[in-house]
């Protein structure tokens, strides 16, 4: 992390050896433009926070990174998004595989109406990642462990996931995402539906996961962005206003709009 932060220039979108990049990204919902020429690099094994007022396009941008916008009718995208240097909107890229490599955790915990075990095993199963029941067991256990949930649920792996508390459900969703060994995990306001204690646990978890995964998190809470992220990008009205080291953004924003948002004058 130190190496990256030293070389990174404040307010400059690019980083060295980015895991993902977005260049000149425009997005339209039918006729309405939602993103304008977004240039952003996602640094490997760091947490990048996307902040900004509601409707600023940060969630939309996040969903471009694993092509979740494909599932919405009438969305057109211009520009380029790369993962490890390859354009993910290339025709040869298989969206199914792409989403396995770039996992996603959503705003509201959305466990499938199945058992805890089956929720976590879902990804490995559909992608054919395992050859035996033992292997699957191991993946489920490791993933739950990694999401910090194993201790709480190991005695009831076969009980329905919908019976868990909100915070547990969200960590289960993280475990579910982790189970397919993604390289990047996208999180869309993962704590907005959780109480403070559950939030603390998830934040802690995000910090843990950083050592193995590249994480992009959309958040409404500036405190959260400050706590968990190394880089922060500020979006406003569909444009990327400013991006840089989290410390720099919060202590010394270059742009007036960023300053205004951070100091609470609008948002």
């Amino acid at each position: 992390m130190a190496a990256v932060s030293q070389s990174a220039m404040a307010a400059k979108p690019s980083v060295e050896n980015p895991k993902m990049t977005a260049r000149n990204l425009d997005l339209f919902y039918s006729d309405n433009q939602a993103l304008y020429e977004v240039d952003l690099d996602i640094a490997e094994k760091q947490v990048t926070a996307l902040i900004g007022p509601s409707g600023c396009g940060k969630s939309t941008f996040l969903r471009c990174l694993n092509r979740m916008n494909d599932t919405i009718d009438g969305v057109t995208i211009k520009g380029e998004v790369t993962l490890d240097g390859r354009d993910i909107y290339d025709k040869r890229i298989d969206v199914v595989q792409l989403r396995a490599r770039i996992g996603m955790v959503f705003q509201k915990p959305n466990p499938f109406p199945k058992s805890i075990y089956d929720n976590v095993a879902y990804g490995p199963r559909i992608h054919g990642l395992v050859n035996s029941r033992d292997e699957l067991d191991e993946i489920v256990m490791t993933s739950l462990e990694r999401a910090g949930l194993l201790k709480e649920v190991k005695d009831r792996l076969q009980s329905p996931a919908t019976g868990l508390s909100g915070g547990q459900q969200q960590r289960l969703c993280i475990a579910r995402a982790v189970a397919v060994s993604p390289e990047v995990i996208l999180m869309d306001e993962p704590c907005s539906a959780l109480d403070p204690i559950a939030t603390a646990k998830v934040e802690e978890l995000i910090d843990e996961l950083r050592s193995n995964y590249t994480i992009v998190i959309v958040t409404h809470s500036m405190q959260q962005a400050a706590r968990v992220s190394q880089r922060t990008a500020f979006f406003h009205l569909g444009k990327l206003v400013e991006v840089g080291e989290t410390d720099q953004i919060f202590t010394n924003p270059k742009d007036e709009r960023t300053k205004g948002y951070i100091t609470g004058r609008f948002g």
Binding site: H127, L129, E145, L150, K201, E204
Partner: peptide, 20 residues
């Protein structure tokens, strides 16, 4: 309990599965 979880996670991350 947070600290405990964290310790456990550390152990796991050492024998990380290879990326697919």
């Amino acid at each position: 309990s947070l600290m405990e979880d964290r310790a456990a996670a550390k152990v796991i991350s050492d024998n990380l599965r290879k990326p697919v």
